[in-house]
Amino acid sequence: MNSIIGDSVTFALPLFIIAIGGIYCEGSGIVNLASEGFLGMGAFFGGFAFALFAQFLGMSSVANAYLSLLFALCGGAIFSMIYALLSIKFKANQVVSGVVVNMLSTALSAFLASQLNLSIFGQASNKFLLAVFPRFTVKWLVNIPILGAFFDDTYVFVYIILFVAIIMTYVLYKTPFGMNLRACGDNPQAVATTGRDVNSIRFKAIVINGALAGFGGMCFAYSISTNFSSSIYAGYGYLAIAAYIFGNWRIKQTLYACLIFGFSRSIGYVLIQHLGLPSTYSDLVLTLPYIMTLVLLLFFSKSNISPKALGEPYEKSKR
């Protein structure tokens, strides 16, 4: 039981932080399909930073692990500026530019990973090996039944994500910046009349999205494969999108959605182990989150309210 909860939380929380980024982005009125690209690129930057600093600090350095998370954050943010440029400045169709940015990210990270491995580390490989991320146990909370499993030998990034999530929730709902951001998603012209720059708010939202997605991507790289390779593009970004749409663009409900995804996944794995089915059945388990999303969307879509100005480039003169 403990392992189910532990596994599902390690899967759900990186997904959650990516979804928060998506909420920021879509909340400001920019369609977010580029999460997949951001998380991959973030993981690439993080993986590269890890490999680079491992030369000086050694593979097992704890500081290096945290440093790589920081670099993933920055890398995602920098890469997301391309998307910001396309969708804000160039007014390209946001869905299309999202898809293009995803493609660019896949191609660019594959190319850079091979090239950098070759020219800096002298290896013919397209992977960056990572160390195991440090884990942490909150001793005085472990003994609580069921809930204690959250705190038993959990990856440290889970706590970091919880902390960041609380801050981001506060910023989005309680600060003027967050209010303006959400207003940009519903009625950008109204925000402009109060003298604020819609495009700059949207730009910030996208960069926040990129940073959070990059961070989440690095967490996935640590928890799922302990290396950076092109297998990071496994659709987690899209799953995060499903999570926040299912959560009706609100952070709290999105957390529930992510936890549901995580639980259904790890319960499925445990079931297969229990029933002694061959490993090919894990494919069926992996469909569970997606099927659940579809079924739940079927019931909740009518009441789903997306930001009103979602997908429209901001035109000053439009009424």
């Binding site: 899209y238 999108i241 749409i245 999303t293 969307l297 879509s301 009518k302």
Partner: peptide
Amino acid sequence: FNMNEIVVSIMINYI
């Protein structure tokens, strides 16, 4: 059902 066609498509892709 007013389901977002993009999300439905992505889900269907993976399923």
